[in-house]
Design a binder for these strands. Structure first.
Length: 209
DNA sequence: AACTCGGGGCA
DNA sequence: TGCCCAGAGTT
């Protein structure tokens, strides 16, 4: 894999290609953030945004959501993939928020990851975006581009990518880097037929260690 | 570690 | 139209 200096250079060139990338999910508070990210698991942010306004109007907080049965949640989730599971996890998650955290969104990794439907990526988004706590959320786009551009060793896990990016990118850029790198993965470094070769600045620093 | 889930998006 | 996707849970 690239040494630290080149990994930093390559990541910064990727980020510079999408300097103004903004979060695509619509949310107004931590509860909405958690729910929106939870729902976005197997779908696009755009699909989630179509559903959340009505969902948040009907269920503005964990307390109201916890009272809803999975069946009642289904109509809001029909247009999203895996709606049965999402309804189940959403229902469970809201009840866990009430029982364990008095309806507040926990601010630590252990409690967040223990919630139904909440895994490592969702946890890192809530920590970093919702609470300003240093964390870096690695999705499959970021995982892929880091493998493709040798930011990490071949076969590196999500956790290894997470640690490498945090090691290499300045902490105050983590949230922006997350957004920019996702766009780089979607628009340029696709799973198949990546167009990275059109961006020679990505290949100027290739020293490995 | 491999498998499952299931509609949306893209070739 | 058919293949692949993304992230969490399950086995």
């Amino acid at each position: 894999m690239l040494n630290k200096k080149c990994a930093k250079k390559v990541l910064e060139e990727m980020i510079a290609l999408f300097p103004n990338a903004e979060p695509e999910l619509n949310f107004k508070n931590r509860y909405q953030l958690l729910v929106a990210v939870l729902l976005s698991a197997q779908t696009t942010d755009i699909a989630v945004n179509k559903v959340t306004p009505a969902l948040f109007e009907a269920y503005p907080n964990p307390a109201s959501l916890a009272k809803a049965s999975p069946e009642e949640l289904m109509p809001y989730l029909q247009t999203i993939g895996l709606y049965r599971n999402k309804a189940k996890y959403l229902h469970l998650c809201a009840n866990q928020l009430m029982e364990r955290h008095q309806g507040e969104i926990p601010s630590n990794r252990k409690d967040l990851e223990a919630l139904a439907g909440v895994g490592r990526k969702t946890t890192n988004v809530v920590l970093s975006v919702g609470f300003g706590i240093p964390a870096f959320a690695v999705d499959t786009h970021i995982h892929r581009i880091c493998l493709h551009h040798k930011i990490v060793d071949p076969g590196a896990s999500v956790r290894q990518v997470e640690n490498r990016v945090m090691e290499v990118v300045d902490k105050d850029q983590w949230i922006q880097a997350h957004q920019s790198l996702i766009l780089f993965g979607r628009r340029i470094c696709h799973p198949r037929n990546p167009e990275c070769h059109n961006y020679p600045q990505l290949f100027t620093c290739q020293e490995e260690e």
